[in-house]
């Protein structure tokens, strides 16, 4: 039977729409207005047309930051998703230890970004930090303020520490929703552990896993506070990710026009990738039932 469609329900989201208008749409429109003008402050604007967009599209600085950003997101997704799934598969499924694991794993998620940054900034210091000091004592050269590789390792490990739990918790929720009958059927068929994962657990987890990937992608693509606190974008520009570069441009140099053009392009990339993920997710939902 066809479901009745009642479009009047849309009116219920009107309050949210108004809120979003003030918190997102008006600032976004202002950014678009800034992107075609130049200003020297004092609320005086001069028409610049598409100059800033052209400048940004030809700016090596922006492409480099975009490259670093994509690399960062790709690396953390490649680590966090398999690791999260692995943890979820090996977690106790019920009883005290299951609750214990869930609580312990939620802890990093509750820590504010700047605190996470500060923790790792101190943790990695060679003079007083446990990690930095230990590595130094072992003779492993590690200094995230001077060495690009060390800086990258630090921000990646920090992000993995902070957010893998989210993937694990979502994957765990997906696993818990699989009825026992599936496992019993697999047992009767004498399916291997890999076959159970490949043909039962993974397909059943796919929906939540896509949500996890989407959330982690968007969050990592917009990451600002943690690397800013730990490395400040350095050494040099090695960890200057898109949002750090954007803030430098907009607030550090007060180049509002180029920064606005930059943020619109940044926004469009996020919008495109999120839409692709959203479409894949809804398609999976439809297939799943």
């Amino acid at each position: 039977m066809e479901k009745t469609v009642n479009q009047k329900a849309w009116f219920l989201i009107l309050p949210v729409l108004l809120l979003v208008a003030f918190s997102a749409v008006i600032p976004l429109m202002t950014v678009v207005n800034y992107s075609v003008q130049d200003t020297f402050g004092n609320n005086q604007f001069f028409w610049a047309g598409l100059e800033w967009f052209e400048e940004m599209l030809r700016s090596e600085r922006m492409w480099d930051a975009l490259g670093r950003q994509l690399m960062f997101s790709a690396i953390i997704l490649a680590i966090q998703v398999p690791l999260g799934v692995f943890i979820a598969l090996n977690m106790p499924k019920s009883g005290f230890w299951s609750s214990f694991c869930l609580v312990m794993m939620s802890l990093p998620l509750l820590i504010p970004w700047n605190v996470v940054g500060t923790i790792w900034q101190i943790f990695g210091r060679v003079d007083i930090g446990l990690l930095g000091y230990t590595l130094d004592a072992l003779g492993i050269p590690y200094n995230y303020t001077q060495n690009t590789f060390a800086a990258w390792v630090t921000i990646i490990v920090m992000d993995v520490w902070h957010w893998t739990s989210l993937v694990a918790l979502l994957a765990f929720a997906g696993l818990k929703s699989i009825p026992d009958a599936y496992y019993q059927a697999a047992k009767i068929d004498q399916a291997s552990r890999w076959a159970i994962f490949r043909y039962i657990e993974l397909p059943k987890m796919m929906g939540v896993l896509m949500i996890a990937i989407l959330l982690r992608f968007m969050d990592s693509f917009m990451i600002y506070t943690e690397p800013f606190v730990v490395t400040g974008g350095g050494p040099g520009n090695a960890t200057t990710l898109l949002s750090i570069d954007l803030v430098k441009m907009a607030l550090g140099q007060f180049d509002l026009g180029p920064a606005a053009a930059f943020s619109i392009m940044y926004y469009l990339v996020i919008l495109l990738i999120s839409y692709v993920f959203y479409t894949v997710m809804t398609n999976l939902d439809k297939k799943g039932g």
Binding site: T30, N33, V36, Q37, T39, N43, W47
Partner: peptide, 10 residues
Amino acid sequence: MEWMAWTTPT
């Protein structure tokens, strides 16, 4: 509308 820095094209 100055606070939003409007222009005719935008």
